[in-house]
Design a protein around this nucleic acid. Structure first.
Lengths: 129, 129
DNA sequence: CATTACCTTTACGTAAACGTCAATTCAATA
DNA sequence: TATTGAATTGACGTTTACGTAAAGGTAATG
């Protein structure tokens, strides 16, 4: 129990390079312990890594991810901050929803345009383009 | 009609610098015409700018935005690509939804922890922390 | 006509997020 | 014991997305 991970364990599991993990440590996102010179990553480190990587797919900077993760420190118990965090996420989600609607509008436009095109082609019968 | 915009028009409207607009042009995202040396942005340019900026808030690179915008070229009328685009957006939205759920779980955890803390404090009565 | 207000290009600078050697160390194995 | 494999620490390089002068053109205005 209390399993730990080597740098290559995590690197291969999450398809990042060791360099990336060291960089994240440098930026305070991970805090592996050392057995001698070698880094040993805890389950907590692994979880934080997951959060950082997810943050990236959501377009957050490492800085932002660091802040968000800091807000989920059970010992600090800062629910107010966590609520604000959720608000942020909701805002972002709303942006995505809006964007999606707009794209659907676009595709509808294109559909309509295609329809008209087809019709006018028909009316022009065999006329060449 | 066929209104155009100066670089500072767009810059101030969208709160970016002229440098940014020139950079976007350099990257092929905008294609203003010239009256003499001066750039004149069309409504189409303005629309593309909006899309680029929105892409940014969604965490897309300029490259990615360029690709997506390219997919919405009415003259190309490529509905299949547009559909793929919508899929991408939906995927991203799903990620956000999942993330939000996870955060809500986190806040619930913290709430529960807080509850327990309060209770144990009660049971210890006036014992100092 | 001189100033002001915008615009231009050229070009070097910068922060973030790693990539990519190079030179070592250390432990396990042939 | 020699080698191999994985790890380490520098340290410089790279890409993206602009920032920031510097030096100059142009048009309207006092």
């Amino acid at each position: 129990m209390n399993r730990t991970y080597s740098i290559s364990d995590l690197a291969s599991e999450f398809e990042v390079t060791p360099r990336t993990l060291r960089y994240y440590e440098e930026k305070g996102l991970l805090q592996p312990t050392r057995s001698g010179q070698i880094r040993r990553y805890s389950a907590a480190d692994r979880t934080r890594l997951i959060l950082v990587l997810r943050g990236k797919t959501l377009g957050l900077s490492l800085q932002e991810s660091a802040e968000l993760i800091g807000m989920y420190d059970p010992s600090s118990n800062n629910n107010a901050q966590l609520s604000r965090l959720i608000e942020k996420i909701q805002t972002r989600k709303a942006q995505l929803v809006a964007q999606k609607l707009e794209l659907e509008q676009m595709i509808d436009d294109l559909d309509a345009w295609e329809q008209r095109s087809r019709k006018s082609m028909k009316s022009r019968k065999a006329k060449k383009v």
